[in-house]
């Protein structure tokens, strides 16, 4: 929701980033204020996941120019774990499997790490177990997932739910959900969307990367952005997503090119 007096949470200016020497993000600008819900859409390969990973500090991506402020501090100077502890959360498009590491144990480690950072109480295994089971109920997740290895053998949709569970535990300031809706069946989509909506407050913000309007029916965005070739080429309200759904991306691209070719 857009609030009049809300603070700027994330401010990205002229961000360029490359991987293996190939420039992917090209002069990207993006601003998020607290309370807001943003959707980023765009063709495959346009750089949406790259943007998310660059914000989270993935070591494979090199920021070549531009700036990113997160609650006023220079995000790019922080290590990935520091960014996370500062309240940046990324629900991965492809959550990784960690064989041998119990999911419950992992969740407790991440929870306690962040709690400690915030000067809050850490939970012992028994306390945590009660706590996490409550959160799992919210997402209609079977507690059996606590005893399995992190994401190992989870179905696509189960992995996504496990990501949102982590978001619910860590209570981030800014959550980026990278195609959390892909791979979810219709019921799961509703459950997850409901969970996400419950977590949204006027003090945090959400950025959803998605290809489909159906998610946006449940989590209604304040802004919809279109990404192409590593930059945001159009921003609109929730109606833009509906328009994209019917008309595709070509017209946005054409419009953008026309605007760019106009002599100043």
């Amino acid at each position: 929701m857009i609030y009049q007096d809300s603070k700027v949470l994330l401010e990205v200016r002229g961000l360029c980033a490359s991987v293996n020497g190939v420039e992917i993000l090209k002069d990207l600008d993006f601003t998020v204020k607290s309370g807001e819900v943003h959707a980023i859409m765009g063709l495959n390969g346009s750089g949406k996941s790259t943007f998310a990973k660059v914000l989270a500090g993935h070591p494979a991506y090199e920021v070549t120019s531009g700036s990113v402020l997160f609650e006023g501090q220079n995000l790019l100077a922080l290590k990935p774990e520091e960014r996370a502890r500062a309240g940046l959360f990324l629900a991965f498009q492809y959550p990784i499997e960690v064989p041998g590491v119990g999911n419950g144990q992992f969740l407790r480690l991440t929870y306690n790490t962040v709690q400690k950072q915030r000067g809050k109480e850490e939970l012992d295994p028994l306390e945590f177990d009660d706590f996490v089971r409550d959160k799992m109920k919210l997402l209609e997740m079977n507690p059996d997932f606590l005893d399995r290895s992190v994401n190992e053998g989870f179905s696509g949709g189960e992995k996504k739910r496990n990501e949102i569970l982590q978001m619910a535990l860590l209570e981030p300031r800014l959550a980026i959900l990278d195609e959390t809706d892909s791979g979810l069946d219709i019921d799961a989509l509703r459950v997850v969307a409901h969970g996400v909506n419950q977590l949204t407050t006027k003090d945090n913000a959400m950025v959803m990367v998605t290809h489909y309007q159906r998610l946006l029916n449940y989590i209604v965005p304040d802004y919809v952005h279109v990404m192409e070739a590593g930059r945001i080429i159009k921003t609109g309200g929730k109606a833009l997503a509906l328009e994209l759904e019917t008309r595709g991306y070509e017209w946005v691209s054409a419009e953008h090119q026309a605007a760019a070719s106009v002599p100043v």
Partner: peptide
């Protein structure tokens, strides 16, 4: 790297 990044993204440092 991706496994380590996953942990880092959840606030956990490399050692842990």
């Amino acid at each position: 790297e991706d496994q380590m990044f996953y942990f880092a993204q959840r606030g956990v440092d490399a050692e842990a």
